[in-house]
Design a protein around this nucleic acid. Structure first.
Length: 217
DNA sequence: GCGACAG
DNA sequence: ATCTTGTCGC
């Protein structure tokens, strides 16, 4: 199926693909490498997609790719993937190390149709994925003050993710399952990726590269 | 009808 | 997302 150009087609595609999401981890799921994906904007339609692969244990950067592109799909909350996915897939294609997990900047199941960017990336590639958003979609109770504390992220009486405190006292990040992983594991991975700062290293590094690209060429 | 609404 | 250096506070 071709890439949607209209809101109606985009929504229809989400409704169709949402049924393919797997919210459990394979018994032998091993995560040795993790990719951070992010997009930066130089103008309204000029984008830079970044894919950075980390060693999950040491957090050493194994490879990173920046791709310049343009987009015509406007930003619409809920249809985020149709704006950012094409560039991200190009960046992911060019990375030399195959990631065991994709970490997307945005939501996974915490989405109006339970199919945010992280789910779409996961279903499309078949690679386990999670979404880490700086802002919530849904409601949540304030998690405890300590690093590692969590609370449910709720949408329409459904638990769609978790508010996760990655450092003592900082604003939580919002974690939701993308594909082929369970929520507990997803949160554990985010904590492992954020030993020192609020945002996971995947997001931080991808973000840096993104604006580096936007200000150079 | 009005406001909300990942990046 | 983007505008962006020094500065306030623990």
């Amino acid at each position: 199926m071709e890439w949607p150009r209209t809101v109606e087609d985009a929504v229809a595609l989400q409704e169709r693909l949402r049924t393919q999401v797997i919210t459990a981890s394979a018994p032998d799921l091993r995560i040795d490498t993790v990719a951070g994906l992010d997009v930066g904007y130089r103008s309204n339609d000029a984008v830079a997609g970044v894919c950075v692969v980390f060693d999950a244990k040491t957090l050493v950067v194994l490879d990173e790719v920046v791709v310049e592109d343009t987009t015509d799909f406007p930003y619409i909350a809920g249809l985020f993937a149709f704006r950012e996915m094409p560039v991200l897939l190009r960046a992911l294609d060019q990375v030399a190390v195959a990631p065991d997990l994709l970490v997307a900047d945005g939501q996974g199941l915490a989405h109006p149709r339970r199919f945010g960017l992280a789910c779409h990336l996961g279903v499309h590639t078949g690679i386990p994925s999670i979404g880490v958003a700086k802002n919530p979609m849904g409601t949540f109770a304030q998690p405890g003050h300590a690093r590692g504390s969590t609370s449910d992220l709720v949408m329409e009486d459904e638990v769609v993710g978790r508010a996760l405190r990655t450092q003592d006292g900082v604003k939580p990040v919002f974690v939701s399952v993308g594909h082929k992983i369970d929520l507990d594991r997803a949160c554990a991975e985010v904590l492992r990726l954020a030993p020192r700062y609020r945002l996971p290293e995947t997001t931080r590094r991808a973000d840096t590269l993104t604006r580096q690209a936007a200000s150079s060429a």
